[in-house]
Simulated scan of single mutants.
Amino acid sequence: MNTYQPSLNSQWKSLDGARALSILCVLACHLLPLGPKTYFDLNIAVGQFGMAIFFSLSGFLIAHKLITERSLVEFAINRAFRIMPLLLLLLAITFAWRMPNTSMESFSTHFLVIVNNFPEHYFKETEHLWSVCVEIHFYILAALGFLVFKRSGLKLLVMLGVVLSIYRFQEQALFSTTTLFRLDELLIGLSLGLIWHSDSPLSQYLKKNLAMINPLYMMIGLAVASLAPPHPLLFILRPYIAALFIGSLLFNTQAYATRTLASSMWSWISKHSYALYIIHPFLLLTWLSSGDKLTMYAKRPLLFIVLFAVAYVSTRYYEQFFIQVGKQWIKYRRTSKTGTPITVPTPTHLEPVFYEHRTKNTVRT
């Protein structure tokens, strides 16, 4: 057993906390007025901060899934049945409501999950889907790299992430939501999964050093790098600082920040984070977000109550139904190959989901 690898039995509870923190930051960014805009736009900064944490966390988890799943087919089934049902329901509601005043281009870019590359086809309630698009493109790229080159493919993708970071800096594409200019934030996170699953001298050295990093310092550094308007260099360094933050949570298990984020108080929010993310833009189109500014924010407590209630129902009944369908499909595939009933492990709620950052000025970060 690795000296610096924490127990798998903990299910990385501090990562539950990191996920909960990231979705709370996104919700605060979209639903609350965060201070004056004299020097910095704190709404943008908080959203950037939460998004960076999530993308790094997602990169680590996808590397772990690819390395540990029994097959890429099972990886695809798990991802599809976890993500697509709620996403497709959202799109079905959107287009049913907006018909017949929608174009075929808008329909196709949304349902093909490429609308982030054609932002002119967004609707107000679907602007946040840019991160879903980038995440799914990342899944496909990571799976293809692993299919062709196994773990070496993930290493190549990490290097590709570094190249894309440099290119993004050169192009000063700080707020673009296209796949080309956002993949680096996910690809860098893959390195954490490779470190976790390797016993090489280099990985042991990295684990030892990550175990000495205080996650709190990384959080502060990430907060500074997330300030808006951003310093271009700090902005590009965000994925690397976020990776150090997630890596320190993984290996510095005795740090105060790690133990705090591992608290059970974060578990419920983490479990329902995907539904919270994908549902909240719809509530902004309802009576709960109507009226002048004072009236609108006076309704915010009620909006939060409704949001968390709907997220609970979605997670507990709608999404869980399809997750179970996916598990049964995997079980059937395994049984048909072996002729012996096989138990499919129940997935934990620490699954990659999607957050985003949007501002009232339609700058999507």
Rank of each mutant, 00 (worst) to 15 (best):
V344H: 04
L141G: 05
V310M: 11
K208Y: 03
Y277E: 00
L86M: 14
P281L: 00
F75R: 04
N252R: 01
A211F: 00
V306N: 02
L222M: 07
W287T: 09
P215D: 02
W268A: 12
Y217G: 01
M51P: 04
S106K: 08
V26K: 10
T343E: 15
L174Q: 11
M159K: 01
H231Q: 13
Y312A: 07
Q324E: 10
F107N: 01
F282K: 01
F95G: 06
G339H: 03
S22H: 06
V344A: 03
G193V: 10
I44F: 15
L129K: 14
G161R: 05
F123V: 07
L276V: 02
L72H: 03
A142I: 04
V132I: 15
L112N: 08
S314G: 01
G47C: 10
H30N: 11
L210C: 03
F55A: 08
F54G: 02
L233A: 10
Q48R: 15
Q324A: 15
L202Q: 04
V134D: 13
T253Y: 07
R79T: 08
Q48F: 11
F81L: 10
F123R: 11
K13A: 14
F118I: 05
E185Y: 11
V46H: 09
A52T: 05
S165N: 11
G17A: 02
K360Y: 08
V132H: 13
F169Q: 12
V325R: 13
I23T: 02
E125C: 15
R316S: 11
F308V: 14
L24P: 01
I136E: 12
G59P: 05
F107K: 05
E356V: 11
L303F: 07
P100V: 04
Y240E: 06
L222Y: 08
E127C: 13
P352C: 04
P239L: 09
L227W: 05
W196N: 01
